[in-house]
Amino acid sequence: MAQFSVNAQRFDPYKNFKFRVKWDGRYVAGVSKCSSLKRSTEVVEHRDGGDPSTSRKSPGRTKYEAVTLERGVTHDVVFEQWANKVWNFGSGLGKEVSLKDFRKDLIIEVYNEAGQLALAYKIYRAWVSEFQALPDLDANANAVAIQHIKLENEGWERDYEVTEPSEPGFVEP
Score class of each variant (00 low, 15 high):
residue 83 A to W: 01
residue 68 T to N: 13
residue 123 I to Q: 04
residue 172 E to Q: 08
residue 142 N to P: 00
residue 169 G to Q: 11
residue 48 D to F: 09
residue 71 R to D: 02
residue 147 Q to W: 06
residue 47 R to T: 11
residue 92 G to F: 03
residue 123 I to C: 07
residue 74 T to F: 03
residue 91 S to N: 15
residue 123 I to G: 04
residue 88 N to R: 14
residue 91 S to V: 09
residue 128 V to K: 14
residue 165 P to D: 00
residue 36 S to Q: 13
residue 160 Y to M: 11
residue 145 A to K: 04
residue 123 I to E: 03
residue 9 Q to N: 13
residue 147 Q to D: 11
residue 68 T to R: 15
residue 90 G to Q: 12
residue 149 I to S: 07
residue 154 E to V: 09
residue 2 A to T: 07
residue 78 V to K: 05
residue 122 K to N: 10
residue 57 K to N: 07
residue 84 N to W: 01
residue 123 I to W: 02
residue 139 A to C: 09
residue 97 V to F: 00
residue 129 S to V: 11
residue 169 G to E: 12
residue 17 F to L: 10
residue 85 K to Q: 06
residue 113 E to P: 03
residue 82 W to D: 03
residue 65 E to R: 10
residue 142 N to F: 03
residue 42 E to W: 02
residue 87 W to A: 07
residue 101 D to S: 12
residue 82 W to E: 02
residue 36 S to T: 05
residue 158 R to M: 14
residue 136 D to S: 06
residue 30 G to L: 08
residue 84 N to T: 02
residue 42 E to T: 14
residue 28 V to Q: 12
residue 145 A to M: 02
residue 15 K to Y: 08
residue 105 D to H: 00
residue 122 K to E: 05
residue 19 F to R: 09
residue 9 Q to F: 14
residue 74 T to Q: 07
residue 89 F to H: 13
residue 167 E to H: 00
residue 153 N to A: 07
residue 66 A to P: 04
residue 160 Y to L: 14
residue 29 A to R: 11
residue 156 W to C: 14
residue 73 V to S: 00
residue 57 K to L: 07
residue 99 L to E: 02
residue 55 S to G: 04
residue 136 D to T: 03
residue 53 S to N: 10
residue 35 S to P: 09
residue 169 G to P: 01
residue 95 K to Q: 10
residue 86 V to R: 09
residue 59 P to I: 00
residue 14 Y to M: 10
residue 113 E to Y: 03
residue 65 E to C: 10
residue 125 R to T: 00
residue 6 V to K: 12
residue 125 R to L: 04
residue 172 E to W: 05
residue 125 R to K: 15
residue 123 I to R: 05
residue 63 K to W: 00
residue 129 S to G: 12
residue 74 T to H: 05
residue 32 S to W: 00
residue 173 P to N: 15
residue 81 Q to R: 12
residue 28 V to K: 09
residue 124 Y to G: 02
residue 109 E to S: 10
residue 22 K to S: 12
residue 161 E to M: 12
residue 142 N to C: 03
residue 155 G to W: 08
residue 115 G to C: 09
residue 79 F to T: 07
residue 32 S to H: 01
residue 170 F to Q: 13
residue 147 Q to H: 08
residue 121 Y to D: 13
residue 123 I to T: 01
residue 27 Y to L: 11
residue 103 R to M: 06
residue 146 I to M: 07
residue 80 E to S: 08
residue 76 D to H: 05
residue 76 D to C: 04
residue 139 A to Q: 10
residue 173 P to D: 15
residue 8 A to R: 09
residue 140 N to S: 13
residue 111 Y to N: 04
residue 97 V to E: 03
residue 103 R to N: 02
residue 173 P to C: 14
residue 139 A to Y: 07
residue 137 L to W: 02
residue 118 A to I: 01
residue 16 N to V: 01
residue 127 W to V: 15
residue 97 V to L: 05
residue 172 E to D: 11
residue 90 G to A: 11
residue 72 G to D: 06
residue 23 W to I: 11
residue 85 K to P: 01
residue 93 L to K: 13
